[in-house]
Amino acid sequence: MTTGIENINEETLTLKGKEKQIISTKKTRFIDASGHKYLIGIIRDITTRKKAEIELEHYRTKLEDLIKIRTDEVNLKNEELQRMNKLFVGRELRMKELKTIIKEMQSKNEN
C-alpha cells in the first residue's frame, strides 16, 4: 500500500472436491480524490491457458525431437550419396585412363 507498486502473481488454488486451478492475482493501490488509499484486486482463472501452454510446450519438444531424427537421417543419406558420388567419379576417371591406355596399345600394335 505504501509504495503503490502493482503486484501480479500466479498461484494454485484448490477448492474442496474440485480440480486444482491456477489463478492470476493482480493487486494495486488506488487513491481517491480525498487521498484515501484502497487496495484493488483482480483474480483470473488461467487454468485453461496454463494447460494449453504446457500442451504446446510438449508438442514443441516432440516436434524438435522429430526434426532432429529426420535431420540425422538426411545427413546420413547425404553422406552415403557423397560417398557413392566419389566412387562413380573415381570409376569414370579410371575408365578414361583405361580407354587412353587401350588406344595407345592399339596405336602401337598398328605400327
Score class of each variant (00 low, 15 high):
L66N: 12
E57V: 08
T3Q: 08
K108P: 10
R70N: 12
T28H: 02
K51I: 06
S107F: 10
E64A: 08
K108C: 13
L76D: 15
G4Q: 01
N78S: 13
K26H: 14
R60T: 01
I54Y: 01
E19Q: 01
E73Y: 05
K108L: 15
F88P: 07
L93Q: 08
L76W: 05
L81T: 05
I67M: 08
E92D: 15
T12E: 15
M105Q: 14
A33Q: 05
E110K: 13
Q21K: 09
T100K: 08
T100M: 07
E64D: 15
V74M: 06
Q21A: 02
S24T: 04
L76M: 13
L56P: 13
L93S: 07
K86L: 08
G35E: 05
K18W: 02
K62Y: 09
N9M: 01
E6V: 15
V74K: 05
E104I: 08
G4M: 00
L87H: 11
L81S: 06
A52E: 14
T28M: 02
F30Y: 10
L76R: 14
M1N: 09
N7H: 11
A33E: 12
N109H: 14
L66W: 08
D65N: 12
L93G: 01
K62P: 11
F88D: 11
R49T: 14
E92V: 06
H58N: 13
L63C: 09
S24V: 00
A52P: 05
T28N: 04
N111T: 07
N75M: 06
H36F: 12
I8W: 04
K51L: 04
V74L: 08
K16I: 09
K20L: 00
N9D: 04
M1L: 10
L39N: 07
E73L: 03
L81N: 09
N75D: 15
T61P: 14
G35K: 01
E92R: 08
T71K: 11
H36Y: 14
Y59M: 03
S24F: 00
R60Q: 10
Q82D: 07
I54W: 03
K26N: 07
N75W: 08
M105F: 06
M105V: 13
T47N: 00
L56M: 07
V89W: 03
N75G: 03
Y59G: 04
K68R: 14
E19I: 01
K77H: 09
V74R: 06
D45S: 09
H36W: 02
S34R: 12
